[in-house]
Write a protein that binds this DNA or RNA. Structure first.
Lengths: 235, 235
DNA sequence: CTCCAAGTGGAGTACCTGTTCCGCTTACAG
DNA sequence: CTGTAAGCGGAACAGGTACTCCACTTGGAG
C-alpha cells in the first residue's frame, strides 16, 4: 500500500512540487550568497525563493548542504580551469592564465570567494576536487619552472597565498573598483617570473619561507572553526 | 552650590573613579578588539573590564567612540612610520621599510587591520591623519622613483591595494602561518622595483589601471555603509 | 560630617537569526 | 475519485547582541 514516492523519471526521489521548490531555493541562495557571502541569513534565501523557512531546512538541514548544492557547478569550473591550463602549449602562459582565471572567479561572487578562501575543508564534498586541482597545479608549476620562466622558489602554497590576497582586494574594493584585483595579480605575476628572481632586488632580499601545506591546512581549518563557533559577526 | 566636577588636576572632567573605569574599558577593548576585530560584542568588553554594560555605553555612546579611543596611539604610530621612512637616506630602502612596517602593523591585531582597511572614513578622527600619511607617502614614492629604483607606474593608490591584499593574507592565514604575509610583501616589493618593470615580462603584460583615489574612497565608504547596515555577520 | 550630583550595575526592551514543531494542503498511486 | 504519505508554511522557541531605564551607591566639595 502506497510507498508514495512516485519519482517521475529521474532518481531525485522527490515529489514534483518539492523538486521545483528545491530548485527555487538553490537559485535564490545563489543570488543571496553572491551578494552577501555564504553566511548570509537563510531567512532572506527562503523569502527570495518564495518558500517557507521550514521547507528550506527540510531540504538542506545544514548551511553547508545548501552551499554545496549552490557551488557544485562552480567547483567543476574551477577544476576544469587547471585542465585548460595544461592544454596551453606555452607553460608560462598556461601558468599565468590559470592564476588570472582563478582570481577572476572570486570577483563578483562573494560566496564563491568565501568558499575558495575559507571553506575547502569545511565542505567535504569539495575537498577531493580541491586536492586534485592543487596537484594538477603542481604539475603546471613544475612545467613552467623547467621551461625557465617561473622562479625556482615558487611553491604551490603560493596559490592559497595569492587567493587570500586577492580575496582581500576583491572584498575591500568591492564594486567601487571592480578591476583593482587585476593590478595586484599583474604585479604578482611579474614577481613570479624567473628573471625577477634573478634581478639584484630579489637577490638582495630573499623570499621568506612559504607556509607549509600543513600550515595552510591549519589556517583553513581555523577559519572553519571560527565560523562554527559563531555564525554571526565575522564580516 | 556644588557644580560637582572636581577635576583632580587634568582636564578629564571625570570623577576619579569614573576615569579609572574609563581606562579599564579602553584596556579591555584593546584586548578584545585585537582578538576578534572591531565588531566584537561589547558585552565581552564590559565583562573583561569588570564594569557594567551601562558604564561602557555612558562613556562611549557609539562603538566608533570606543574604537577611536582604543586605536588613537596606534594611529600615531602609523603616522610616525612615514616620517621615519623619510629619515632613511636611501629612498628605496625607506620605501621598502615603510611598506613592511605598515603591513606588520596589521599582524596580530585584527582590530587594527579592520581600522586600516575598512574604517578610515568610518572614523572621522582618523581621517586627517590618514590623509597626511598618504601625502607623505606620495613624497616617498616620488623620491624613490627619482632615484630610479621604484617603477614609474607605481601610484600611491597601490598602498591601499597592498594593505587590502595583506589583510586578506593575515586574516586568512591567522596564527597558523603568522609569517606568510612577509612572503606576499616580498613578492610585491620585488614587483615594485624599477628593473622588474623594465623586464620582458612586464613589458609584455602592462599593468592594469590603478584604482583612482575616488574609487578607493568609495570602496572604503561602501564598507562603512555595510557595517552601518548590519552590525552583525561580517566575519 | 553632610549632601547631592556624578556615577554605577543589572534588569529590561528590542531586534535579528537559527531551528523546530505541528496542523493543514496536495500530488499522485491505485 | 479517494486515501495517504510527502510536503508545506508559519508560529513558536532559543540564543545572542545592542541599547535604555532607573533605583541605588559614592566621591569629594564645602
Amino acid at each position: 500500500m502506497g510507498q508514495g514516492c512516485g519519482a517521475t523519471g529521474v532518481g531525485s526521489g522527490l515529489r514534483a512540487d518539492a523538486e521545483r521548490n528545491r530548485l527555487r531555493i538553490v537559485e535564490a541562495a545563489r543570488e543571496v550568497f553572491a551578494e552577501e557571502g555564504i553566511d548570509a541569513p537563510l531567512n532572506e534565501v527562503a523569502r527570495r525563493a518564495e518558500v517557507g523557512i521550514a521547507t528550506l531546512f527540510r531540504r538542506f538541514p545544514t548551511r553547508d548542504d545548501l552551499v554545496t548544492a549552490v557551488f557544485a557547478d562552480r567547483m567543476s569550473a574551477y577544476a576544469a580551469a587547471v585542465d585548460r591550463a595544461h592544454a596551453e602549449p606555452d607553460p608560462w602562459l598556461g601558468f599565468c592564465r590559470y592564476l588570472e582565471q582563478v582570481c577572476a572567479m572570486q570577483v563578483g561572487d562573494r560566496g564563491f570567494t568565501d568558499v575558495m578562501t575559507q571553506s575547502f575543508p569545511r565542505f567535504r564534498s569539495f575537498e577531493a576536487e580541491r586536492r586534485r586541482s592543487l596537484d594538477r597545479f603542481g604539475d603546471l608549476v613544475t612545467r613552467a619552472q623547467q621551461a625557465g620562466r617561473l622562479r625556482a622558489d615558487f611553491v604551490v602554497e603560493d596559490l592559497p597565498l595569492l587567493l587570500m590576497a586577492n580575496a582581500g582586494v576583491v572584498s575591500g574594493m568591492g564594486d567601487a573598483a571592480p578591476d583593482a584585483w587585476r593590478r595586484l595579480v599583474t604585479y604578482l605575476v611579474q614577481a613570479f617570473a624567473a628573471e625577477t628572481a634573478e634581478g639584484p632586488v630579489a637577490t638582495a632580499q630573499p623570499l621568506p619561507e612559504a607556509p607549509t601545506p600543513r600550515q595552510v591546512a591549519r589556517a583553513l581549518a581555523r577559519v572553519q572553526a571560527r565560523a562554527a563557533r559563531g555564525p554571526g559577526r565575522a564580516q
